[in-house]
Design a binder for these strands. Structure first.
Lengths: 231, 231
DNA sequence: CGCTCTATTGATAAACCTCAAATACAGTGG
DNA sequence: CCACTGTATTTGAGGTTTATCAATAGAGCG
């Protein structure tokens, strides 16, 4: 469980950790602020990748849409994380679509500006590499789960993953701080909203979880872990 | 289709492109050579990640094994590619197992040696970042295919992917230069060898492909493309 | 209170896996 | 060169998982 919500409490995103608060403020000032309403799109798969983004507030969903319109969620980008790093190292296209899941505030920098920063603080390149490797690792995990586990196990594993990255302990259990509809979960896991709904209803009956609108609370994490590991 | 087989013809791997041939020779000399017999393991998921590797000859398969022993192929590492870059930036564990698919020759460097090189040639960090981003992109692709396409489409898409990365044109079609058993394909695609076998038999009857021992030849690439795109 | 969006639940069907058995194939030693 | 052995592939039958579709219930909102 990650109590600092993927952002240093001082407000300095991991990637920029070598910057002083003042340097960071200055750099953020050099970017262009952009407010994106919930549900709106920030950039689209195939667009020329001309800038990268830091999420200052809110949350983005990165997804791919295939030819027949099915949407797959690649990952969520939370406050303090950056995305579209590809722009930093080469001219190319966005390989995913970014959509705001709630009202979201981002800062955008053009390639040249970011490159200048990386020149001044070489550690940032290494931070970015670390970040990309972590994301690759995460996706490798999910890829092999998708290949080998069946849906209910994958749902459990996904809840546990969200607990790790954005869960907070409460008196009645662990709360996942990302608002997720059944459809959202289905697109993230690679199944249908029906299967997710059925499964979660079942777990609710067993007292493993409960849900308040789009907030999920895991009331019996132990049971979910056991289930995920097929014990 | 990639005729240079993911390695500059001069013999300089992409990641080291800023090095002169002499500098590269010197650096490779500073590593430890290691011959791995076909089928043997180079490193195992969970091992302490203490060195990274360049494949000089042969081919590695990176895979993950889940608790019930099912093996999923994350990717193949060909001549001229490096792997286990994670070691370069942090002490950690290998997240995958590397097994030689044929008799393979690798050069290994310890973290400190590689870090020294990166300090001397800062461009190499960027090259590595480029490489990791490319691999992430590739896996995102496969992840969404796994979520949205059915097996036969995925088989077709996979053949096309292999054509792109290691296909060569021949008089009778396009040959995939990686020896792949039905089982290998199944583990790469996320299905069973039975389904792969059935599908390929069918395509063989239709004259789309043929196979010589473990070599696949796509005799009608156009048909495979149409099929992959459900036209 | 009606409207819209999301979630639930049930019935049915399709895709694909599992297991068994037969066949083809490659390599080995006489 | 041939028989032998072990491995890879093919093919079939049957069962499971999970998607699909339809219909209902519930929640939030003006």
């Amino acid at each position: 469980m990650n109590n600092k919500d993927s952002q240093g409490d001082a407000g300095i995103p991991d990637v920029f950790k070598e910057l002083s608060e003042q340097e960071l403020d200055e750099f953020i000032g050099s970017g262009r602020q952009n407010a994106v309403k919930s549900g709106n799109v920030l950039f689209v798969q195939g667009d020329p990748a001309d800038r990268c983004y830091l999420v200052k507030q809110g949350r983005l969903k990165l997804s791919r849409v295939n030819e027949d319109g099915k949407e797959v969620t690649i990952r969520y980008i939370s406050k303090g994380e950056i995305t579209a790093v590809i722009t930093v190292i080469k001219k190319s296209e966005y390989s995913v679509t970014a959509r705001a899941m709630e009202d979201t505030l981002v800062v955008a920098w053009e390639q040249s500006v970011f490159l200048k920063l990386m020149k001044r603080f070489p550690g940032i390149t290494v931070n970015i590499l670390t970040m990309v490797l972590t994301r690759l690792d995460d996706l490798q995990d999910r890829y092999s789960e998708l290949c080998t586990e069946q849906v209910e196990q994958r749902i459990a594993l996904t809840l546990l993953r969200f607990i790790r990255t954005s869960g907070t302990r409460r008196s009645d259990g662990i709360c996942i701080n990302i608002p997720l509809s059944r459809q959202d979960l289905a697109e993230y896991i690679g199944t249908t909203l029906f299967t997710v709904s059925r499964t979660l209803s079942d777990w609710k009956k067993r007292g493993w979880i409960k849900s308040e609108q789009k907030r999920l609370i895991i009331t019996d994490p132990h049971a979910v872990v056991s289930f995920a590991e097929k014990i």
